[in-house]
Amino acid sequence: MADLLFTEFLKLKRSSMFLISLLGSAVAPFVVVIATFIHEPATPFQDLFYNVNLYTVLIIGVPLYGVVTTYLFNREYTENTLKNLLTIPVSRVSFIISKTLLLFLWIMMLSIIAWGLTLFLGMLTQFDGLSSSLLLDSLKQFSTGGILLFVLSTPIILVTLVTKNYVPTIIFTVVITLINVMAGNSEHRGLFPWAAAGDISNQTLPPTYPVEYSYIIIATTALIGFISMFVYFKKTDIH
């Protein structure tokens, strides 16, 4: 598995998608920190982290990580390399696991970059209220958001494997984002897995339903996606 993971990293060498994803992860910190600096410079540092994490998980994260997910899986189809890998042979299970592992590391790296940029830009623009406990808490929030979005990437992987195309995945992630936005003020948003992920990471779940409901919905969505993608990929013919 270590060798397989090494090759996954090697495939990213000179990859423009890597740089694009870095730029994507920088959008929320830049927009939030600069806009806050211009309009409400007295905002405490804590709110900066909260807002950046909110935008990252609910608005930018789903399509950005969706594109990363599609790139990782779909390129083996578009670059016609999957049949080489499977005839080496790489087992289909190992293939999925190594890709998923890299996806996890990639999403976590982007989450940490968003956190780091918020910190850097917030310090640069001299917002008040930075403390070591805030640093730790916010890092935990960004990491939780990243982990939950990774867990919820399994349905997106499934869409990629089935359609073998960027377009359906982008549409899928845009629909998720739209629902996130529409559910923003709803007391039932804890029932929508991606919106619940944002609330869990920022500890803002509405009290309408027990917290366990949100966790169960997220876990069920992830598990259904996970099992479906495994079963589909194990059984599908490679053309």
Partner: peptide, 24 residues
Amino acid sequence: VEVPGFYENLTARENLLINAKIIG
């Protein structure tokens, strides 16, 4: 199988290294 696919952002050596690593 048909036209062979490669990672186009890599050199020939790097592409072969992927196979060499996986096969051992």
